[in-house]
Design a protein around this nucleic acid. Structure first.
Lengths: 169, 169
DNA sequence: CAATACTTTCAATCATTTTTGAATCTCACA
DNA sequence: TGTGAGATTCAAAAATGATTGAAAGTATTG
């Protein structure tokens, strides 16, 4: 397989995975492109290689910077901004985890806590089923949150190595 | 808070979470509704309570059954089908994990393996960066996959308890 | 400070995904 | 085997989300 073909395939695959995980496809593709580029790319490079508009490139590059997955680089003598992806994939995983926890898990936990204070007869099977379900969910969501907190705050390699030793033959 | 208001909020929140995770909003809402209902509901109940069309209700109920999160129930003397959600939230987590692994992780692993066989001078920094990135990703994706496999195949409670003891003070 | 090079914004457009609902099918029962 | 309650399908419509590109903004240079 040619390098370009391989890159193309890889970018497509990463884009598809991203879109299943709430990251928009183009953002994941831009990330993939930067990931496999040894040197920093300009916005123009990204536009050309992915055939997307200037505005789109800009938006997604900024989103990636926002997620902490990509950094701007200033090349002296150049006016353009250049962009380079964080190549340490553990760090990438960490950043993504951190962001999603903040953006998705937290709001749900808030609602669960709120909603548990429902009025009414606790003998009423409707109320009972409701409160029970909510409490169960609260349990698992907060455990997931704590778990992710640990993943994020520990040294990634140590953490995963430990985990893998424990669970993967 | 009134029960109905609480239910409504809960359903909305669960729907939003779902949509961030590649499960469509209505499917997540249907699931939420069944989750907090003590008895099985008919398709009609779901339609009415969520204000969705017959076709939509049908589609999403079937998708939920497909994911193993909801079961059909036959009430004797009734022609209608009734639907009830799996209430054990660990089982739900397990089923979701299983599905996503199958649907998303696997295809990516396949592409990664394929794409690694790129032709060309391994001294070429482009080829080098590419292969390195792909190998890194392969590493983490396959570890994630194995990790999830373990989660799925172990007794959930044991697994999480162990994990929690290890990592959560 | 004017010209230039580049970046950012955002309303309009385009693409994709969901939803609807009427038509069709199915199957238990008379 | 005919009827009808309910389930399913699917093409069209609606909603949502992504993309464009031209205009406005900002910084750098001579």
């Amino acid at each position: 397989m040619e390098l370009d073909e391989a890159k193309e395939k890889f970018i497509q695959a990463w884009g598809a995975l991203g879109s299943h995980w709430g990251i928009n496809r183009t953002m994941a593709q831009v990330h993939a492109l930067l990931l496999v580029s040894p040197q920093a790319l300009s916005a123009e490079d990204v536009m050309n290689q992915l055939k997307i508009s200037r505005g789109n490139a800009n938006m997604n590059l900024r989103a990636l910077i926002d997620w902490g997955l990509v950094n701007k680089e200033h090349k002296s003598g150049e006016r353009k901004d250049f962009f380079i992806a964080e190549k340490d994939i553990w760090l990438v995983a960490k950043q993504v985890t951190l962001e999603r926890r903040k953006r998705e898990l937290r709001p749900v936990m808030k609602v669960l806590a709120e909603v548990k204070n429902v009025e009414g007869d606790s003998k009423d099977p409707n109320v009972k089923a409701f409160v029970e379900s909510v409490e169960n969910l609260e349990g698992i969501v907060s455990k997931a949150d704590k778990f992710l907190e640990v993943v994020v705050e520990s040294e990634q390699k140590w953490f995963f190595n430990t985990l893998m030793k424990l669970f993967v033959k």
